[in-house]
Design a protein around this nucleic acid. Structure first.
Lengths: 286, 286
DNA sequence: ATACGATTTGTAATTTAATTACATTAATGT
DNA sequence: ACATTAATGTAATTAAATTACAAATCGTAT
């Protein structure tokens, strides 16, 4: 998948001259993209066929294929991915790595997303009498964010980070109500409890969570965001970003399903918020 | 910048046969990547030099250059970007467009980020006696999320969405306290008020916001996330995601600045949370 | 040590791809 | 309708990548 990473990994398998080529490649992958076998051979001080052999050994069809993969990798900005953050990294390094990891996570999530589940979720939400958003820890801000988005529409949207308030809301669920639960692992006990209560009381329970998790058992619909391993293992980073973008997509689909009517409403909401902002025109703010 | 978009825009400038080529390209950009002039010429039913001329007119150096740009574009997933969401888009289309827009926003943010400001922010936070996170609307969840992250460390981290609570916190700021304000536009009146109060009381005010905005005036440090225009103009989407990733980077830098000691603490926090989760091993959760 | 085999590497030839030069055709305006 | 310009294709040229094969290097066993 990740060509730069692959080159790095296969480094020990390479012969002396192939190794030289690898060094040149790793030293400045960007440059390779606009290079021919001839010039690369020259910079690495090897012969042209060695370049070709190098590409083959790495697992590419040939040099053009290698260049292409490299180009795509770099465009994705994922050349850094999987390279763990080190203690001696500069701030710039860390920033770059975090961004890279997130970008790659989004790319994966985008590919792996279950479009049917997303569609089903939107349909549910459009029909919903009331929507509640629940999540704990890092997922709490995702739930918060989701509520924020949906508050712009007319369907009542609930969010609270108080477990008792959530419990009450879950118990008071009726058929036609939708409960959206956020959890990366799907193993948060309190959230499972909420989901179960809501389920038992007839609400439609939707989980933005891992497939086959304990939480998934209480969900009518599961939208899983299959995000590769987080860079930082101590707190979820990329996964919750993916969840948020997923919610953005769901919100957009929701708004679309409501058609023109909704557009006008959004415009009205925006106009209504105008007074709480300073005007955009720079001449107006002293 | 965006090759697919460029092709679409230049469509009227093209000659009859070049247009045919453009059609083939737009119809399946993916396919082009693994194609030669010869085969593309055949599918478009034109001659080989026409392919070359097409590439030149679009602004590329030649066919290989065109292929490369296309490959990078598609890898970035930004081929859709700038293509507004239409009323007749399917759920899959909308999802794809939202993801694409976010991915492209992240890529831009990553490039444009002010690394010095990020570094300065991290240094401030490391020295901070207390950190408060404030934001309204969509930025509220960003502030919430940030607080969540920093709560894992030992520096007191405050978040509230209650304006009065925020005001009190701002007024009670002392030198050595850091106040982090989130706002995409930097024109939210209430937030400016908070920032001003905090500033007057001697806190270090950091704004994750637009440069030269009213809010920026009250900030000691401004980290701007220059994100291109949001796809959906009715609510900020990509911009707040960029802010969150930026916070991730800052948190990572913060943790790193604290060194080993912090790693152990994070591990301990994680262990402490264990009881609130079901075990990961599937055999355990019947 | 040295001779054998295997592996690596380079030279030269071949194939394939891309571009250029030029001729032909089509289109447009007078 | 004719002249002029633009568009297109054919054939030639150039450039790039790959293959085939020979030379060199390296390790190993005698």
């Amino acid at each position: 998948m990740n060509i730069v990473q692959t080159v790095r990994e296969r480094l020990p398998d390479l012969s002396k001259n192939e190794y030289k080529v690898a060094q040149v490649v790793l030293n400045d992958p960007e440059a390779i993209i606009h290079t021919s076998t001839a010039t690369l051979a020259q910079t690495a001080a090897v012969s042209e066929p060695t370049i070709n052999r190098f590409c083959r050994r790495i697992g590419c069809k040939g040099f053009p294929d290698f260049k292409l993969q490299l180009a795509q990798q770099l465009a994705k900005g994922t050349s850094y991915v999987n390279s763990q953050i080190n203690d001696d990294d500069s701030v710039a390094d860390v920033t770059d790595k975090i961004f890279a990891a997130t970008q790659s996570a989004l790319a994966t999530a985008r590919e792996k997303i279950d479009r049917d589940a997303v569609e089903a979720t939107i349909n549910c939400l459009v029909e919903a009498r009331k929507i509640s958003f629940f999540g704990y820890g890092a997922s709490a801000s995702v739930a918060h964010d989701a509520q924020n988005k949906f508050a712009r529409f007319t369907t009542p949207a609930i969010y609270s980070d108080d477990h008792l308030v959530q419990k009450v809301a879950a118990i008071n669920s009726l058929p036609g109500d939708v409960v959206l639960c956020f959890s990366h692992t799907g193993r948060t006990k309190m959230l499972c409890e909420i989901a179960q209560l809501a389920h038992e009381n007839g609400a439609t329970v939707i989980g933005i969570t891992a497939k086959d998790s304990p939480l998934a058992k209480f969900c009518h619909i599961v939208v899983s965001t299959e995000v590769p391993e987080d860079t930082d293992h101590y707190m979820p980073m990329a996964s919750r970003i993916a969840q948020m973008v997923l919610i953005d997509a769901i919100v957009a689909g929701f708004a679309l399903a409501h058609g023109d009517d909704m557009k006008q409403r959004l415009a009205r909401v925006k106009a209504g918020l105008k007074d709480s902002r300073y005007p955009a025109n720079p001449s107006n703010n002293k």
